[in-house]
């Protein structure tokens, strides 16, 4: 009967992983990714591996989405900071990065 729990958590992991792929905006992807970390932690607990679940919680629910959102913020802010005299040669490349991100976000 314990298989029911394993099946439920496996289905949740599969569904959240699919949702993480299907959502296109990186910021929203970070939110789904943290939910994927949660469901994976639940799966590891059900599979009697609480130590793996602990590390998965620390990495999956907190660190990975934090890094993702920080990176997205940095990329979005670049076009605004190029006027402060630090731009130089990199202005063109950062500008295109910002535009690409903006296009992806607008989808």
């Amino acid at each position: 009967m314990d298989d029911v729990l394993i099946v439920i958590t496996l289905l949740l992991v599969a569904a959240s992983a699919t949702a993480a792929v299907a959502v296109r905006d990186p910021v929203r992807q970070a939110l789904v990714l943290s939910l994927l970390g949660l469901t994976l932690a639940a799966l590891f607990t059900v599979l009697q591996a609480p130590d793996v679940a602990l590390s998965q919680l620390a990495v999956g629910t907190a660190l990975t989405p934090l890094l993702l959102t920080l990176a997205v913020r940095k990329v979005h802010r670049r076009p605004h900071t190029r006027d402060d005299g630090r731009g130089g040669e990199t202005t063109g490349s950062t500008g295109t990065t910002g535009n690409a991100a903006a296009e992806e976000r607008g989808e």
Partner: peptide, 25 residues
């Protein structure tokens, strides 16, 4: 009873993660 530690860590990390989102979003 050692599995309770996972819940304890999650109880601390969960709201902290939401605060991070409140700041970044």
């Amino acid at each position: 009873s050692s599995y309770v530690d996972v819940a304890l860590v999650l109880a601390v990390l969960g709201p902290a993660g939401t605060l991070v989102y409140a700041r970044l979003l």
